[in-house]
Design a binder for these strands. Structure first.
Lengths: 211, 211
DNA sequence: TTATTAATTAATCAGATGTTTAATTCGCCT
DNA sequence: AGGCGAATTAAACATCTGATTAATTAATAA
């Protein structure tokens, strides 16, 4: 005798199309990968969070690594779009930095995801990350700085490559080190505080800290 | 029949005192943890690198986590010493940043180790890290900045907390993002280039980038 | 309606991982 | 010399992990 009514949930296709499970898996994996790292995350944890079974990971993405790639692509899209829009639209450097930092605030797992990728010297993953994203973003930032330098808005004794890395550091580090910055340096991350931090960053870059 | 001569290596105490194995395990673990992360590193890998067996990890450190704690303490000691010497010796802010960045160059795995720790939200580990190190370092930096502010060497409209996080970002980020900075921004990390980067960082902080 | 295909679960597998235990060797103290 | 304790290894254990397979259900095409 079959208990169709009382069985909590068995195998078989669900009403919602498969695209729904796919999306939920990516969202769950993004959170877990950012918090626990790739190796620290099990597909069972991800599946439970997405309310499906572990086998769905392999059905939709082929492997844990395939899911990871999907997460990276999905998460990096808006960043690339932001930077490209900045350069192509001939925006000011200040505007690009501002929208970049705001994006980081809205996507707190982004720097964690990127950093775990950058730090690991596993190889394959990092190479593709640099090719598909970092090279692009780096070029955009350098292009912006060189444009400003060419129009005489930067000091001549400042090396644009160094300026780029310093600017990136000031923009990204507060989000990377957020748990420490919050508790040790008493930095807040609400909208108002973030606006103040952005203003501070741009002012410091432009005018320095000495009176 | 026992093959005392030909048996490659069996159990039993070795000539070198146990302190030697302990040191080698810490060194091996530091490299592996920095490269592969805590979860991505197996005690068998560490043991092989240190030329002992996995059981030695538990004999000397109780557990993998205990070894991790020992690595963190061992690696962080010189950083804390550097920062404390800076404050107690009433050094200039510039000197402290300079020696801090030089320390980061000499210990490339340090920022990876710290960041992996900061990023993970496992809990226990991060709390002790903040208590034992970050709180200390953060206070030192803030103390330095507030001393400079008090003696009128900082602009009054610059918030010392923000200045601290920006300065840390400029100092640490180049080492954190080193694989990307090298390949995407063409930054070098030899002694001369690093000296130039340090000068640039301090000049940018002091005087800004606008003409 | 019926056959086919897409989506899903439960069960299972082989390999890896942190840890424990028992046995073994060496240095040192009496 | 003898014995105790420190240091070390090999082997075994239980658990966890990514992946596979077979069965099952729902949507869809014929």
């Amino acid at each position: 005798m079959k208990w169709k009514k009382t069985r909590p949930r068995g195998p078989g296709r669900r009403a919602a199309s498969g695209e729904e499970s796919r999306r939920r898996l990516i969202a769950a994996a993004r959170a877990e990968f950012a918090q626990q790292g790739y190796r620290g995350t099990t597909i069972r944890t991800i599946a439970e969070r997405a309310d499906v079974t572990a086998a769905m990971v392999h059905y939709h993405f082929g492997s844990k690594h395939g899911l990871y790639l999907a997460v990276i692509r999905d998460t990096l899209e808006p960043v690339i779009a932001t930077l490209q829009a900045g350069v192509q639209g001939e925006a000011q450097l200040a505007d690009v930095i501002r929208s970049y930092m705001q994006l980081l605030q809205r996507t707190p797992e982004l720097p964690l995801l990127i950093m775990r990728d950058v730090l690991a010297d596993d190889g394959a993953m990092r190479e593709s990350f640099i090719r598909d994203f970092a090279a692009n973003a780096g070029r955009q930032i350098r292009a912006l700085l060189e444009r400003e330098a060419a129009s005489g808005e930067l000091r001549e004794d400042i090396e644009p490559r160094f300026a780029a890395v310093s600017l990136l550091g000031m923009a990204v580090f507060p989000f990377l080190a957020r748990p420490i910055a919050e508790r040790v340096l008493n930095i807040d991350y609400d909208n108002d505080s973030l606006a103040a931090l952005i203003d501070h960053t741009l002012r410091l870059f432009n005018e320095g800290a000495r009176p």
